[in-house]
């Protein structure tokens, strides 16, 4: 394990540097605020690097880092749930007033899913993770991921009328 430690650190740094844009976008899609997203990405990196010696298997580094990043984003989201800007409130009001028959754009519909459902959809379709990887990245088992994905797709269909393939 000692022997692997420097390699894991190097692999993780490469993974972070190469994927920084994706990580920022994923964080941004949860926290919806530029500075908060930067903070989330930074905190995830600091935490991951300081604990990198606890990862034995280099193959898990990728999903392990996603897990930390999503965790940070969720925590941020939760902590700031009570602090909503006036603009957002007004935007939400406008949203509520729309014609119920009108179909939502798929992207907007995804944002209306619960956080765990959003996560499954984003990791599956935007980050192209396999279902097993999603299970590792969210710390759940494969069956939970499957049922969550299935439910999310059904809800998306209700909102948009679009039939998304379960496993494209």
């Amino acid at each position: 394990m000692r022997q692997n430690a420097p390699d894991n650190r190097q692999l993780l740094v490469e993974h972070i540097v190469n994927g920084q844009t994706e990580f920022y976008r994923l964080a941004m899609s949860y926290v919806k605020n530029r500075d908060a997203a930067l903070d989330v990405v930074q905190e995830a990196i600091v935490k991951a690097l300081s604990k990198v010696d606890t990862v034995r298997e280099p193959a898990y580094l990728k999903t392990w880092f996603y897990r930390i990043l999503i965790n940070e984003a969720m925590n941020h989201f939760r902590r700031n749930r009570n602090l909503v800007s006036l603009e957002e409130v007004m935007a939400d009001r406008a949203e509520e007033g729309r014609d119920p028959g009108e179909r939502l754009d798929l992207y907007d519909a995804i944002e209306r899913l619960s956080l765990p459902e959003q996560t499954v959809i984003k990791l599956r379709y935007f980050e192209d993770l396999k279902l097993e990887e999603i299970a590792q990245a969210t710390g759940t088992n494969l069956n939970t991921v499957k049922s969550r994905l299935y439910k999310a797709i059904r809800r998306l269909k209700d909102m948009t009328g679009e039939e998304i393939d379960y496993a494209p």
Partner: peptide, 16 residues
């Protein structure tokens, strides 16, 4: 972003 990422990597290395 890339500056922030680099700063975070340094900080993470330091803590490690």
């Amino acid at each position: 972003l890339s500056l922030a990422v680099r700063a975070a990597i340094r900080e993470g290395d330091r803590l490690r």
